[in-house]
Amino acid sequence: MVFTSVVNFVRSRGPDEFWRKRKVFRLAAAFQGRKRNCYSIAIRYVHRALVYATKGRKLKKIDMKNLFETRVQAACEQHNVGYATFREGLVRSDIMLNRKTLADLACWEPYTFKALTDIAQRKAVDDGLLDLKNADSLDSTITRGIITDSVKPK
């Protein structure tokens, strides 16, 4: 053990009360009022904060998922594709992108995202999921399914 000062050396000998409390005070450092100075009050609020932190780890994932979905939905709407159709079309085209990647593409690479919606729509129309009035506009889009289906012997 390395002691940086005489004070710490003295404290290290007795019961570990000081060090035990200091761990709690470290966690309570950013609190306001007596919550950060008085141990019996600090420990209650540290407990509460740790419970929030535990719950927050799950909530953060849910929140981010909702945010990504909102963004992708907004981008889908710009290209007149439903969110469910879009995701199903991508899965059927073997394009396994998660929500985060799709949201990033929608935000930063709008042309890439447009291409993805085209592919998803093309696949949805080919598989009979979607009945588009102007499906001719998708004629220039080629999915892997088109090639394999046309090569397959009938």
Binding site: L67, A74, A103, A106, C107
Partner: peptide
Amino acid sequence: GLHKPIYHT
């Protein structure tokens, strides 16, 4: 602004 891909609360 829910119709924009840049949406954030």
